[in-house]
Design a protein around this nucleic acid. Structure first.
Lengths: 161, 161
DNA sequence: GGATAGTCGTTCAGTTTTGAACAACTATAG
DNA sequence: CTATAGTTGTTCAAAACTGAACGACTATCC
């Protein structure tokens, strides 16, 4: 690799070994973890991880409902991806679309009773996967350090904190 | 039925607040980060993050080449996803397919000179994104703790790694 | 009041991923 | 050698995602 010629204005700051290791490990773990989760959810309930996250978000809300845009921001999906997934979940009877009273344009997604039961049924198995492959491998101190560190990264990425 | 994920014996162990916070933060950051990276690479070179990762892996190999299956494992992609992406990269002239001398079934993907130049051109900008949104937000200690912790998780997920 | 800009959710075409099926080849065991 | 089992990479249809464009509505300003 030739570091001699770099951009004239902003100097290139490469990642040193430790930084590179951190980034690579983070990337690898997030990919592997997602694969295991996806596999489990598909087998357990025929759900996507994206769909599962939608159900979780809704279940935590008073009224088990959320505006489309806010929900999309919550699960970090594009608006069109959410439209697609809500349609799928509606087809499965886990979610319903409702008109928004305060905004004529708005759509409110609501978790149905069946959706809530589905979530309660599969959550334990899902969390077991998260435990086995991530959480249970970390000491309490590592856990807290990681949370604190990643929260700083999150703040750097969210549209103004 | 899938025996792998159904366990009637062990009691459900929910995640406590700290564990849940860790998991949520990890998930959020990996989604946000991927979005920023994807956006940058698309703008800078019309590449996907998946495609970029393929180029990086190949560039680090003696001969800048790798068997398809090994490459798929390296970037954590399915075999069919890799087939598709290598075809795209071949179309762009960044990668070539070669016959494997030792295995008649095998295909070896090779990074072309143009592919290497492309990578060298866009790597600084990419790493700058990784820095700004992840690495530079962490202290050296946090960085090392996170790497160590996530490596344990990786070991738990790799097919007996 | 009316013009203008902004937001909301959907649609659409094009891209990427998925998992099962498959032909071709290799490895193992008798 | 000859089954038999396993691996390799591709293909295919279906699922999922992307980003731009859009009509519909709201907010803001003068």
């Amino acid at each position: 690799m030739n570091k001699k010629y770099t951009c004239r204005v902003t100097q290139t700051r490469w990642l040193d070994d430790d930084e590179m290791a951190a980034w690579r490990t983070f990337l690898t773990v997030s990919h592997l973890l997602d694969r295991h989760i996806e596999e489990h959810l598909k087998a357990a309930a025929g759900l996507t991880h994206a769909q599962y996250e939608i159900l979780v978000r809704l279940s935590e809300t008073p009224g088990r409902s959320m505006r489309m845009t806010e929900l999309a921001r919550g699960v970090i999906a594009s608006k069109s991806a959410l439209t697609y997934q809500i349609t799928q979940l509606e087809r499965s009877g886990l979610v319903e679309r409702t008109a928004c009273p305060s905004d004529e344009r708005g759509v409110v997604a609501v978790l149905t009773d069946e959706g809530m039961r589905c979530l309660e049924r599969i959550a334990p198995g899902h969390l077991e996967v998260v435990r086995r492959f991530l959480i249970d491998n970390l000491t309490r101190e590592e856990l807290e350090t990681m949370t604190h560190a990643l929260r700083k990264a999150e703040r750097a990425m969210r549209p103004h904190g």
